[in-house]
Amino acid sequence: MSGGSVRPATLLAGQNVLHPHSPAEHSITVLWWVMLGGAWIGLTLVAVLLVLGWVRRNRDALPFGGGERAATRLVVGLGIVTPILVLTGLFLWSDIFVIRSTAAPARGSTALTVQVTGHQWFWEIRYPGMKAVTANELHIPVDTRVNVVGTTADVIHSLWVPELNRKIDLIPGRTNSVLLYADRVGTYPGQCAEFCGLQHAHMELLVVAEPRARFEQWLHGESGSARPGTGAEAQRGQQLFLTEGCADCHQIRGTSAQGQVGPDLTHVASRTTLAGATIPNDRTDLTAWLRDPQRAKPGNKMPELPLSSRDIAALVSYLEELK
């Protein structure tokens, strides 16, 4: 199966725009419900007029039907005056007031800043001031305003975590930022929303909101270098990693692997998913990934390397130790 993947069971949380977990997303949801109510009223009016016409079909014209003046007044009233009133209200409310709640946070106004860089087709995540570099899993402390600053390494991507906030486009040569805030511990899935080529569908992201202490601990761990492989199998894996070409593309801090093409693998084992949240990060899927990265995610930029099953097993053993 092409792209054959089942969403990892731990991630059954949704991407529901109307399921807000932040004040910003909450205001968007309110906006939606109000607009929906207005839309129903408008649609009902039109539907009534349509049905009225249908009911009156082939009946004689109404006695005042010839009254051009009255008809024109109705058109002016419903077609000009009413929309102006309704839309002025909507404009002032949504585009002058609500827009503030989704606006980019001012620089330095948040306790934490995270840097996200889009790649075809994974997310590179850095924590300025710390050495931590990770991919596709963005950890934030819960109940904390976080400024996410985004740009791209190649084409335009768009960062979107539906239950937390609006989306921002990641554009070459520009940076955009968005406020991420989660009011509850949990994992919030997100997606690349701008078409970015072959595997745009599998450029997913997880935002993990944790209690402050857990988060600090995680960040501390991520900032450290990788532990060398323990045991013969893992050591052989490490050796293979450095000699078989993996190191050309991947970085493992603390080793000589300094590649910048693919995701940083220093703590790859601490992630719950692989390849843009496409497959779960377990032994079977990791093995399958190394055997043929093009199967789960056809067209992605990691080539199939000519490795024996033994070599792959060794590599997996090594990678699994990179907590």
Binding site: R57, D60, L74, G79, T82, I84, L87
Partner: peptide, 26 residues
């Protein structure tokens, strides 16, 4: 974008009232 609604709304209601004030044959 909000302004552009008005010409559409004018037409919608002009169509609807033409149908309703005439002798529509569906």
């Amino acid at each position: 974008s909000m302004m552009v609604v008005i010409p559409s709304a004018i037409q919608i209601f002009a169509w609807l009232f033409t149908v309703n004030l005439g002798r529509p044959d569906f």
